[in-house]
Simulated scan of single mutants.
Amino acid sequence: MPQIFVVNSGSSSIKYQLVDLDTEEAVLGGLVERIGEPGSPVADHESGLRGILNDLGDEHDIAAVGHRVVHGGQTFTGPAIVTDQVEADIEALSALAPLHNPANLQGIRAARAALPDLPHVAVFDTAFHHTLPAAAYTYAIDAELAAEHGVRRYGFHGTSHKYVSEQTAAFLGRPLESLKTIVLHLGNGASVAAIDGGVSIETSMGMTPLEGLVMGTRSGDIDAAVLVHLHRQAGLSIDDLDALLNRRSGLLGLTGNSDMRDVQSAAVEGDEVAEAALAVYRHRIRRYIGAYIAHLGGLDAIVFTAGVGENNSLLRRRVLAGLEFLGISVDVDRNEVRTKKARYISPDGSPVAVLVVPTNEELEIARQTAGVAL
């Protein structure tokens, strides 16, 4: 009964899961927080990993370790066995993901030190989107400057988009290669992907996870000249602007609250500010749906996933309201069903299948890890 130890390392946390390869079920999982913070009993990531492994005991048959890494740049187009060179490459890409790659790398180094005899595999959020055509990933700025500094669209949430698109094909009982699918990964971070025959051809996040949809604390799409204006007129520095767009925008910036559940509850109770924010949130999603139908040249399925997408029936219904002319509609009763399983929320015979498909990024990381390490 071989198992994959999946590690998702943050700057002060380690989220982990042990996945059984035979059943593809999580045997156990957990989270270690406040690593290295004052007063914390966990001094560093290596201490955290060793504590986790002590808790796991010797009865588990760990065959390999899979690590989530946010940014693979143009270097990594699929999972990679971790070597010293791979570590160096991940570190070199930290300029593109300064909040994520260094933390991911801490976890990799700690795990390699704690489990030196096992294969370690890096699974990249960006890898699934390496199939984007040049027209989709190119920004219209000075080409030499862009090439020198790696400025292009990379896309993120790739493990989720890959997993959900494949689960969609299995649920529909159709070949993946035949499907034109839009996946809406809606959580605190949110992105959309247009997937044609299992291949990502467009996605809303860009060089970083900031671009695209309105998120919990991120602005999503914004006129770049707004930053120049705020620098000149409000005196905001580069660091101020970074904090504004990534940590003080999105639902938080519009309402003072980053949690969709709280914002929607306020809107239902008549809070006009909350309702206006949700209108912006929905409008942005609908804009991408329309654009991606055009890029795909048709649509077989639209799929909601992640925390908001899987659990917020009112949002799903209102996002798709009025799209019946595109063959997209929602069955009110089906939409209200709560289950952890994939399900239809469109009426029987609908030209476009509207689905809720729970994501499982840890399982996808385990599958990709096993694919290259075992």
Rank of each mutant, 00 (worst) to 15 (best):
V199D: 10
D262Y: 06
D259T: 11
I302N: 11
A103D: 04
H60L: 04
I365F: 00
A92N: 14
A353C: 04
D142P: 14
R343K: 14
R367M: 09
Q167P: 09
I182L: 03
N360H: 03
Q368W: 03
G371M: 10
A267C: 08
S249Q: 14
Y16G: 05
L49Y: 09
L56T: 07
A135W: 09
I289N: 12
A140V: 01
Y344C: 02
E364F: 08
S350H: 12
A190K: 12
Q233C: 10
V337D: 13
T359E: 07
N101E: 14
L296G: 13
S13K: 04
S160A: 03
R367Y: 10
E148P: 04
D239R: 08
G270L: 02
P98M: 00
A279D: 15
L241N: 01
M260S: 06
G216R: 05
A225H: 07
V337S: 08
L210G: 05
S219I: 03
D125L: 10
D142R: 15
V86M: 12
A301C: 14
D58I: 06
D223I: 06
I108S: 05
G39M: 12
G78C: 08
Y344S: 10
R317Q: 15
A127D: 15
S329T: 14
H231N: 12
D125C: 06
A127Q: 14
P41M: 02
